[in-house]
Amino acid sequence: MNSTPEAQVVVAVDGTSGSGKSSTCRGVADRLGLRYLDTGAQFRAMTWWMLREGVDIHDADAVAAVAEKPTIVSGTDPLDPTIEVDGVDVATEIRTEAVTGSVSPVSTVPQVRARLLELQRRIIDGGGIVVEGRDIGSVVWPQAEVKLYLTADPAARALRRAAEEGGTDVAATERVLAERDRIDSGRATAPLTMADGAVHVDTTFHSLHEVIDQVVQLVERAAR
């Protein structure tokens, strides 16, 4: 059992796609013996379910009407984070192009955000967790002891995301990321924004190890 001063801390990490949030959060959680939650995977899981059920994702009313139906379970082991929908492991399925291209319209629906917000807060309660997303420090858990906002140069973000997804069209990836940021920053409910009190971390010219070190130091300082 983790009995260090960091054991009760909540680390809220927001930021743009491709800025290194997932790798950073998992690395920090592993280093400090904390749990890890990828809220983006929950939105992807909801989107995957909508697509499987044939819901018109561009019809906000249709999405809202069924947002309570799927059972979404997130594993919080930073070395092996899992995501299940109705008992089915969808870790691979939620990373397909179909889901990636559909998650923004689903995530803008207030009923979807409300449903997942409740789930996220239940998981975070008790602390000892690193949480990544786009509105963690501003909406989901504004009382977090450590709040970070990760960004990177658009070209660097596109290179990272294209490499993650096994693609080679970096320019197309950059356009997709820019459109995702535009939608998420402009949505009426819980827009992408840097939370009050958040530390801005630009990862463009830093290695993953360097970023993890920086965040670990911030967490250790906050816990003491």
Rank of each mutant, 00 (worst) to 15 (best):
E210V: 01
V211H: 04
D80H: 10
T203E: 05
Q120L: 06
P78V: 05
V63R: 03
G101C: 07
E84H: 14
D125K: 08
A188Q: 15
V130G: 10
L148D: 01
V106M: 12
A195G: 06
E145H: 11
S104T: 13
T16G: 00
A41K: 00
G20E: 04
V85E: 11
A60S: 15
A162F: 08
S19N: 02
L117R: 13
A7Y: 04
Q143S: 12
K147W: 03
L119W: 02
A144D: 11
E220P: 05
R160M: 10
Y149D: 01
L32R: 00
Q217C: 11
S185N: 10
A155G: 14
N2I: 11
D30H: 13
R122L: 05
D14T: 05
A190G: 03
L51R: 05
M50H: 04
P110N: 10
V215Q: 06
G33V: 06
R224N: 15
D125C: 03
A222F: 09
A222C: 09
V170D: 10
V131K: 00
G54I: 11
S104A: 15
A222R: 10
V99E: 01
P81S: 04
S3P: 01
D184K: 04
H200E: 12
T82R: 14
E145V: 06
I136P: 00
G75E: 07
G137C: 09
H58N: 13
V9L: 15
V131T: 00
S3F: 09
R161K: 06
F205V: 07
R221V: 15
L32F: 01
P81Q: 01
Q217K: 14
A65E: 14
P70M: 02
T16I: 04
G133T: 03
V131M: 02
G128T: 03
L159N: 11
P154G: 03
P105Y: 04
R180H: 07
P191T: 07
I129E: 00
S107V: 08
G18Y: 09
A171P: 00
T4A: 15
D77T: 03
A198N: 00
A163C: 06
V146E: 03
D153N: 12
I123M: 09
D153M: 10
T16H: 01
G167A: 13
V10L: 05
I124P: 01
L79R: 14
T96C: 09
E68Q: 13
G137H: 06
A190Y: 02
T24M: 11
V99T: 05
T92G: 10
L79A: 14
D135K: 11
T168E: 14
D14Q: 07
A178E: 15
V66L: 09
G167N: 13
Q8A: 14
V73I: 08
Q143L: 13
P110Q: 07
E174N: 08
R161M: 09
S74Q: 09
S22N: 07
W48L: 15
H209C: 08
T203A: 04
A65W: 12
V109C: 08
D80I: 04
R122H: 10
G101D: 09
R122G: 11
V170M: 10
G126T: 08
M46E: 11
V88L: 12
